[in-house]
């Protein structure tokens, strides 16, 4: 080490002193600065309180109330003047296994969607990150181009693509017929739901992955190669571990919306493809059992929050090492 060892210490000491003097200087301006902060921050905060926090609380309250005779909610105070709050809907969710099964099925579809998106997005994001500046913006534009047309229209487009008279179904079933197999419907199936889920989710995986891969330092790959790593080893030992924050971000952005989706199974799924999102929609609009719909929503929200928390925790643990 010689005399270089003590070098970082004066630097660190200086780094620690500077903020404290700055804080002292800011002390005088503090009231005005914080007033400005509040003025800027208050409108969005108010917006979130009124339109997100309040409805969530209302939903939590609704989950403990009884369903109304003709749907909706029964009065919170019943004829005898007693407060009508109960956990009946929660008991129903726990005791009837069909609901848990729908949850598992939704999680399974969301997991598959995330995996396929990752497999498709990784090469694409790598390609964009490695292409020259000239084409990069164009390629990114192409990735987000589908957002320019309506979500439902894009789902209905898949009805045509997967329909029984479309070229794809004819090709698949024609091939199956050659082997003497019975034709399969492509539309109104789990397959259709999954294909469309992957299709609508893909940009949400590509963008965070690209943002991460674009920052990678070519010198690290040169170093790995210089130290004896072949292309495969360079990817698994350097590129992939360094891209994990992007993978976690993309996985969260794909998995959580896919978990609650209802439009795609509604339009493209068969009777077997009822997911948790459809179930919630049914409770509110068809069965009109609001308390039970609220319970399902809360369970979904809690599950999504837990997954986001885990993703953030894992991501931070990884990022801490490469700050």
């Amino acid at each position: 080490m010689g005399s270089s060892a003590p070098h970082p210490e004066p630097l660190a000491a200086r780094g620690e002193r500077e903020p404290s003097t700055r804080e002292a200087g800011e002390g005088r301006r503090k009231p005005r600065a914080s007033l400005g902060k509040w003025l800027v921050g208050a409108p969005p905060l108010l917006y979130l309180l009124v339109f997100f926090a309040a409805p969530t609380l209302i939903m939590v309250l609704a989950s403990f109330r009884s369903p109304g005779e003709f749907g909706g909610l029964a009065p919170i105070v019943d004829e005898t003047g007693k407060l009508d709050l109960n956990v009946d809907s929660y008991v129903r969710f726990v005791t009837e296994p069909v609901f848990a099964r729908v949850f598992v099925k939704s999680a399974w579809y969301a997991t598959l969607t995330t995996l396929f998106c990752l497999l498709l997005a990784y090469p694409l994001a790598t390609l964009i990150a490695k292409s020259s500046r000239k084409y990069r913006d164009l390629l990114l534009l192409l990735v987000i181009l589908p957002f320019w047309s309506n979500f439902l229209i894009r789902i209905y487009a898949w009805m045509i693509i997967l329909g029984p008279n479309a070229a794809l179904a004819k090709l698949v079933n024609g091939t199956l017929a050659l082997f003497g197999a019975a034709p399969v419907p492509l539309l109104f199936s789990g397959f259709a739901v999954l294909v469309c889920l992957v299709y609508v989710s893909l940009p949400f995986m590509v963008l965070p992955l690209y943002a991460n891969l674009e920052k990678h330092d070519q010198a690290l790959l040169d170093a790995a190669q210089d130290l004896g790593a072949n292309a495969w080893q360079r990817f698994w030992r350097v590129t992939f571990p360094l891209s994990l924050p992007g993978v976690y971000a993309g996985a969260a952005l794909v998995f959580i919306p896919a978990l609650g989706i209802f439009a795609i199974p509604d339009i493209l799924g068969g009777p077997e493809d009822t997911l948790i999102g459809n179930l919630i929609k049914q409770q509110f609009l068809e069965t009109r059992d609001w308390p039970f719909g609220s319970v399902l929503s809360i369970v979904l929200t809690v599950a999504a929050l837990m997954l986001a928390g885990i993703a953030a925790w894992v991501g931070r643990r990884g990022a801490g090492r490469r700050a």
């Binding site: 690290l220 130290l227 350097v238 490469r322």
Partner: peptide
Amino acid sequence: PELRPVRTVFQSYALFPHMSVEGNVAFP
């Protein structure tokens, strides 16, 4: 490069940020 018996020390150090000192030295 990976098959040449020469090693490079890069100007930017090019240490693997996700590996400890030991991990970096163990890599080759």
